[in-house]
Structure formats: C-alpha cells, structure tokens
Design a protein around this nucleic acid. Structure first.
Length: 463
RNA sequence: UCCGGUGUGGCGCAAUGGUAGCGCAAUCGACUGUUAAUCGAUGUGUUAGAGGUUCGAAUCCUCUCACCGGAGCCA
C-alpha cells in the first residue's frame, strides 16, 4: 500500500478507508481501557495524526516498549471519525511496524518546550520540533515564491560563481580558498606564491554575485541570482551569518525608482504568498513566537512603503527630540538606532532611504547630478532593520574609473567590469536581499541562527 | 571586535558566605476515549574549568571557555 502524507490525510473529510502513514511519534498516551494513543508527525505539516492502537493487536505486545517519543513507525489502519475531542479524524490501527526506536532515557527531545539555545546544540534533531518544522516549511515556500516572482516577470535565473578571484567590492572580509600546504606554503620574495595554488591565483568564496550579475543583465536584460554568500566578518549578532543566502536581481534599463518599485513589489509579493500558502504555520508563529506577526505582515502588504531621501532622513532625525547615542550629521552613516526610530516610531512601516552621500557608499553606485550623492537605496524594516541594499549602477566609463581610483581600488583588477561600460553600456540597477533576514522577519524568529538549517557563525561550523 | 549579562541533575529554573532544592522529563505503579492527560512513588549533581580569599564558597576575587543580549561591520 502507498503511504499517505499526514498533510493530505488531514484534508480528508470521509473516513472508512484503509491507509498507511509513516512518521515519528510525538507523544504516546496509554489507556488501561486496553489501547494507546499515538500522535504521529511526518513533517508534511504542523498537525499530527492520532492513531489508536488496540493492545490486542499482535504487534503491539511485541513492540510496546519500542514505541516512545521520537521513535519512527509505520501504521496501517482505517481512517475513522474520532470519538474524542480535539481532532476530527483518527486512525484505527490494524498493523504496526517500528522503523527506529528512540531510547526514552537518552533521547534529547522531550514532550515540552526547549530553549532555542539548547536546540542549537542538537541541530541534527531540532527539525523534529514544531517550530523548526514550521520555519523550514516557510523557508522553502519563500524560496519557491522568489523563483516564481522573477520567473513570472521574465527574469533569467543566473548562477554566479562561488569561488571567485575578485577580491573586491568592499562587501566584507573573504574566506580564502586554497589547496596549498598551510604549514609550508611556496613563497616568492617572502610572499605566498599563489601561482602554485590550485587556480593559479588567490581565490576566495564570493561575498556577492552582483558584479557578475551585471554582466548578464547587460545581455539578457533582467536576471536574478539566488545562492549562498560568505562573509568572514567577526560579527556576533542575531542578524548575521558567515554563510547566508542572498537574492540579487539585476536589471538593464531600470533607474533607481524602478529599482525601488521592484523591491517593494517583491517584498509584498513574498509576504502575501506566505500568508496565503503557509497559513497553518503562520498561525503557529502568531501564537507561539510573535503575537503581532500576522497583523504586521498584512499591514505591510496593504500599505505603501515610505520613501525618503537620506537628506530628508537626516533632517527628520535632527528635528526629533529623541536622545540618540550617535549624533546625526549629514555625511555620516545612519546608525541602527536612527533606522529603527524612523521605521518604528516615525512611519511605523517599511521605509526606503535613498540618495546617500557618495563618500559612505560603494564605488559602483551611480553618481547623482549634485556630485555628492549616489543613487543607492536601503529598504529598512521595523525591528529587523536593513533587509535590502541596492542601487543604480554607474554606467559611465570615465566616472566609474575615477570612482575606482578614489576608492583606492586597482582598475586593472576590474578590467572586465569596466569593459561593460566600454561596450554597449546601459543604465541598470539591482539590489540584494538577505534570504535569512527575510525568513526571520516573516516568522518572527528572533535569532537568525534559527532560520537556517545549519548556521555558520564565527567559531561555529558544527553539523 | 567592544560593552553588558548568564553558566547549578537530561531540560527549565531556585538557593543573596552556613545541610544544594523545585517544576518538567525519565523509571515504576494507579486511573482514564486520552489531548504537552492526571495522581502517587523512585533515582538523578566534581554548582562550566583552573586558581585565590575564608573556619566555611553555587554565592566574593582573578584568569580561561561557552552561551545570550546590545553595538560596530553588513544582507
């Protein structure tokens, strides 16, 4: 007989059929009436199916000791209307098989709530909890929705390299990739001789696929990347990972306004998709993780983001009576406290700050006519902060070359990037969205380590 | 990396210089179409590690480690 997933099973209204379910026992309650109640979960959805196992069933007497919280079982039986409260349907077992036992005295997951800190120490078992099941289902749905959003709009999904030689862009410290003998590397003039390394030059893990994305946007018009990204920053916060996933669309013929329009539409689309397609899991987050999450997401979907220039933002901050730790002056980067004040207290919704001072932003961002600001934008969410950073790219060869030099970067290393401006250059824009921050925001989970299956942070790469 | 906090049975926590305890889980039993069942009984500790102060340290001091929160860097 073919196994049926519990998600399908719970959608059925008619009983009396013979079915087969397989899954992990969440809890077992015995009745001296001569039967046991088993709650089975297979991860296909939040809900469990209750199975009634009569103690006269042959297998039960043999397997009784083996059926504990955490064990894995297969149950044949009839789907019937439940006599008890709390569930409509249940399975009257006719046959039982135990695939794997879980010794109750040593199984680390108990029938109670655990702290997320503890669950991180048992990252191989935490997906068997309600919270992590829900997080990973929502994460998967968001990934699907991301592809759907861009695919519907004719964007080409582009895979940019993970191992790269562009030791550049200033996005962050990089992880080096090498096959050289670390205890005795070959040297020339006292320096490591990368000519003898695997790729014949120094290579690292990518910090962004943007520059490569621009290559393809200036050929296919609209592309997006969605893949892993690596930053060797010693960041120890609830919003940073050393290995995370990033979505980076890059579009020819888009100016900064088009870029902001796309970013806003994108975020709203994703939130609406999850509200519609993960309602059960979202209901769980609303009850157990953040009581305002559904309201917050709906509010964002239904309202326009507030767009203001960096100069306006500075002005508003200077007008406010709020006591900031960092003083506010035109030309300084906005601090987390400033961003939060604007999105949480002033506008109470997502904001997009754009036209930042040239001096605090990257070399590739397009210089405005005023000569002192660039067409950069950040999407800031209440509580979470920056979720998207983007810009219109500088398409003028001479200006780009000057900005490279002003940033103390070697134009030689960017020869192909400059070539894009020598041959058929075009106005173009793009942005990057941190996937885990999105999952964090959507689920209401407080720590980014709990929205990725295997978090990598400084001094932590176990599992 | 900086600032602050925490570290005590399997898990969550208490004990404010004087006998290390509670809840949950586990084990055994009772009871029941049960719902994170309920009731009773039982076992569980190098108080993160090292050193110091003291008649006496989970508690005070020093160092190390781990984790958490905030900041910076960013997505």
């Amino acid at each position: 007989m073919k196994r049926i997933k519990i998600k399908e099973l719970l959608n059925k209204t008619e009983g009396q059929e013979s079915i087969l379910v397989k899954g992990w026992v969440r809890t077992r309650r015995d009745s001296k009436g001569g039967f046991s109640f088993l709650e089975i979960n297979d991860g296909s959805c939040m809900g469990n199916i209750q199975a009634i196992v009569d103690h006269t069933l042959n297998e039960f007497s043999e397997l009784e000791k083996q059926i504990t919280t955490g064990s894995c079982v297969a149950i044949n039986g009839k789907l019937v209307a439940s006599e008890g409260k709390g569930q409509k349907m249940e399975i009257q077992a006719t046959a039982l098989e135990v695939y794997g036992t879980a010794d109750a005295e040593t199984y680390p997951l108990q029938k109670k709530r655990h702290s997320f800190e503890y669950l991180r120490e048992i990252a191989h078992l935490r997906p068997r909890t309600n919270t992590f099941g829900a997080v990973m289902r929502v994460r998967s749905r968001l990934a699907y929705a991301i592809h759907q959003f861009f695919n519907d709009r004719g964007f080409v999904y582009l895979n940019t390299p993970i191992v790269t030689t562009s030791d550049c862009e200033g996005a962050g410290e990089m992880f080096q990739v090498t096959t050289l003998d670390m205890t005795n590397p070959p040297k020339v003039d006292g320096k490591v001789d990368y000519a003898q390394d695997f790729f014949g030059e120094k290579t690292s893990l990518t910090v962004s696929g943007q520059l490569e994305g621009e290559i393809y946007a200036l050929a296919l018009s609209e592309i997006y990347t969605f893949g892993p990204t690596f930053r060797a920053e010693n960041s120890n916060t609830s919003r940073h990972l050393s290995e995370f996933w990033m979505v980076e669309p890059e579009m020819a013929f888009y100016d900064l306004d088009d870029d902001m329009d796309l970013a806003e539409e994108f975020i709203k689309y994703l939130l609406a998709d999850v509200l519609e397609n993960c309602s059960e899991d979202m209901e769980f987050f609303n009850q157990r993780i953040d009581k305002t999450i559904l309201e917050t997401l709906r509010h964002i979907v239904d309202n326009q983001f507030e767009r203001l220039t960096y100069s306006d933002a500075i002005h508003r901050l200077q007008q406010s009576t709020e006591n900031f730790t960092y003083s506010v002056e035109w030309g300084c980067a906005l601090q987390a406290e400033h961003e939060r004040y604007l999105s949480e207290k002033v506008f109470k919704k997502p904001i997009i700050v754009y036209n930042y001072p040239e001096k605090i932003k990257s070399f590739y961002m397009k210089l405005n006519e005023d000569g002192e600001t660039v067409r950069a934008m950040d999407v800031l969410l209440p509580k979470l902060g920056e979720i998207i950073g983007g810009s219109q790219r500088e398409e003028n060869y001479e200006i780009l070359l000057k900005r490279l030099k002003d940033s103390d970067l070697d134009p030689e290393e960017y020869w192909w990037y400059l070539d894009l401006r020598r041959f058929g250059s075009a106005p173009h824009s793009g942005f990057g969205l941190g996937f885990e921050r999105l999952v964090q925001f959507v689920t209401g989970m407080e720590n980014i380590r709990d929205v990725i299956p295997f978090p990598r942070t400084p001094k932590h790469a176990r599992f």
